[in-house]
């Protein structure tokens, strides 16, 4: 059990983040909560990639021939820098839209029940 946890445990954090995000998206009554849920799912994706890069005993991937070391895989890190930027941009656009919805309707409650969502 503990061997399983040490090898797969970190991946659980990815599962928890995505599950929480999905739960919030499916059950929210407020649009801001939907945005938070989305952000959790995106963060889950980022954590997933970072975990892919990890190696046991790995360290910062700056090569130096005098020091013997195992670098972690730098590629997923580079990818995630881009993904974080994309995520922040999405968040920004989302917040701008929420601002306009708030101005137009005076609230951020989800009005799907009134049949207005389409």
């Amino acid at each position: 059990m503990s061997a399983y946890l040490t090898s797969h445990g970190p991946y659980l954090s990815f599962v928890v983040l995505v599950a929480l995000g999905a739960y919030m998206l499916l059950t929210h009554h407020n649009l801001l909560r939907a945005l938070v849920g989305l952000y959790l799912i995106q963060s889950g994706g980022i954590v997933f990639f970072i975990l892919l890069a990890f190696r046991t005993g790995g360290t910062v991937p700056i090569l130096d021939e005098h020091i013997e070391m195992i670098p972690v895989n730098p590629l997923p890190h580079a990818l995630m820098l881009t993904a974080i930027v994309v995520g922040v941009a999405t968040l920004g656009v989302g917040l701008a839209l929420l601002h306009r919805i708030q101005e137009e309707s005076g609230h951020l409650e989800d009005d799907r029940l009134e049949g207005n969502s389409e």
Partner: peptide, 11 residues
């Protein structure tokens, strides 16, 4: 109403 549908699309 376009902001509302755009938000839905964004999510």
């Amino acid at each position: 109403g376009s902001a509302r549908v755009a938000f839905n699309y964004l999510i």
